[in-house]
Design a protein around this nucleic acid. Structure first.
Lengths: 341, 341
DNA sequence: TTACAATTTGTAAAGGCTTACATTGACAGT
DNA sequence: ACTGTCAATGTAAGCCTTTACAAATTGTAA
């Protein structure tokens, strides 16, 4: 029968060091307002007791947390994971901490996570894409929590953002595909419901087709969740159609890589028989053979800039607008000329 | 000049709904102790104000957070990201929330993160691997925070864990490599300092070599951080040695895939000229050609079991011990017989 | 109608920390 | 020795919630 030893508090430390709680607090927060001698005593007591300040109490008393929350659709997507890593590193150098949550692409869960992060005292929030229930934006307004949108650029939306133009990027890629003579295009896309990035990429292709005098309704479309295997299955479905598309554009690299694997399994040569493109430019893109033509998403730069911007917003910077970082085409071996008829 | 609108508190809600703060609190926590009529009034007030309970205050008053912290080396490693996703999903179904932090494989940062998570009120902690400063275990003890180790299995260590035997798994793989006639083995490993998983995998190969009558000191070793490009460079270095190894085992799939890419660039055929193996069995392993022989790490099962176990520990379950989930060999095309001399 | 039980609501203390303000002490200048 | 400064430390209020306990309300049985 052992007594549960309560976790030590500021008070315990003060008692052991023979000082007041205020002094202990100062040792931790404003160390040079306290004598060397006293500080040593206090630090020793802290070490002896294994004391750790209670974050909740501290936040409550000081009304700030130096914490910024981030909500991404899923950690399984390498491009988000990378972006977050950069975001966190930048935050760290400014003394801020990151709180992450993932929504599994579900708006209801995202909303729950937003509330949870706000309740936890996040001083600001990082969100992916603009599209969500207006209710949420009202809530953040009511709580006066600044929010920054990343992964999107749309100057028509008056909300701070750091990202790139998904539509224009995909447009550029599709234009290149068309330039190489392809006329029967297909798209393997992530589900577009409540996903403005996916929708804009699709619209980018439509734009390019229109500009080339094609009917955008002829774009063969398969929607499927983010997973290599799904890319493979979607590719199967497309290859079974008549007439076969000669170029399969994919909403992201993971789907594209699944498509490439299945092409090999079906005995189709890339790009001789069919061209395949991706979007994101994750490491994977250069590991497959042939290397994947794709769009490079500036995830590191986006993460870093987002961190800086958000910190500015926390400090009251009100001048933040939409920033376009641009996304660069990476033309590689998986995209070739249209096969001879 | 706009007044900063303070974020609404329990008190504000109570005032607006004409009830006491206690009643509002009950609406949130014990809804059926309060009349339908009152509850509606209160809920309306909450909605009107955009109120969100203050997590810190709540934690302080109720002395629990229903939050479990997890610290992984990096989010960029897909295998950890996957494991965490499963962990989080399981936690969610039990009403718990996950707090993540990543240490970049640096013990000092890990320690800082552990303190931070504890301070934030984590009821328990998930940690990767056993090896860390004993000081940390003492600290957790002093704070009475239960901790569970994953990704490792070592029955000699009396500490709750859910994982698999890295050494035995790598031993099995190396045994198969030797069975296929390979005698000149190389290992591309993650840095082993403060990384018991990497070290155990290396020792597994030593075990197999000894059993086959080889001198484990003949294992050609390159240590390099987790990144595809590093795998490629390490492979370069190994191929420049004389005599060349005929089989290159890798500490993880990412390094292995880098090695495979470089093999292709060097004009070496896998597995005809050189065999390559990985460890983890991430999706990547089946995307490359030939598919990568590797060891399947039961990341989902591990995440799920870890969540259940940890919740049990929070509730006072004291009977937790070391659990071995096993890791299965995945023999695939990148491992072949030793080339004729 | 009255008394009592059961249900609903209110009151106030506690929880760990920061910080404005008050107090003490040391030291320089005279 | 005495006063005035300034640095170091202490005191106590306040941050927002939960919850034990008290009070009020409702319903029921006699």
């Amino acid at each position: 029968m052992k007594l549960t030893k309560p976790t030590p508090t500021l008070h315990d430390v003060a008692a052991r060091a023979n000082v007041s709680t205020a002094t202990v607090s100062r040792c931790l927060n404003l160390p040079d307002q306290v004598t060397r001698r006293t500080r040593d005593k206090v630090m020793q007591a802290i070490a002896d007791l294994g004391y750790a300040p209670n974050f909740g109490a501290r936040a409550m008393a000081s009304r700030r947390t130096n914490t910024i929350g981030a909500i991404i659709p899923t950690m399984e997507n390498a491009i988000f994971a990378r972006g977050l890593q950069a975001f966190q590193e930048e935050l760290r150098t400014h003394g801020f901490t990151m709180l992450v949550a993932s929504s599994s692409y579900r708006p209801d869960i995202e909303q729950e996570q937003i509330r949870s992060l706000v309740a936890r005292g996040a001083d600001a929030l990082l969100l992916i894409g603009h599209e969500r229930d207006p209710e949420i934006y009202r809530f953040l307004e009511a709580q006066s929590i600044p929010a920054l949108i990343v992964w999107a650029y749309d100057p028509r939306i008056a909300r701070p953002s750091v990202g790139f133009d998904n539509r224009a990027a995909m447009h550029d890629l599709a234009k290149e595909v068309l330039r190489r003579g392809h006329r029967r295009l297909a798209l393997i896309s992530a589900p577009v419901a409540m996903n403005d990035r996916a929708r804009e990429r699709q619209e980018g292709i439509h734009d390019a087709m229109c500009a080339a005098g094609l009917d955008p309704r002829d774009l063969q479309l398969v929607e499927t969740p983010y997973a290599i295997e799904n890319g493979a299955m979607a590719f199967d479905a497309l290859m079974a159609r008549q007439p076969r598309p000669t170029a399969v554009l994919c909403g992201n690299d993971v789907l594209a890589v699944g498509a490439m694997r299945r092409a090999r399994e079906l005995g189709l040569r890339v790009p001789d028989d069919v061209s395949i493109t991706g979007f994101d430019d994750i490491e994977l893109a250069q590991v497959v053979y042939p290397p994947l033509a794709t769009v490079h998403v500036p995830h590191r730069e986006m993460g870093r800039r987002a961190a800086q911007t958000l910190i500015g917003m926390v400090h009251g910077d009100i001048s933040v607008v939409a920033v376009d970082l641009g996304a660069e085409l990476k033309l590689r071996g998986s995209l070739g000329d249209v096969p001879a008829a």
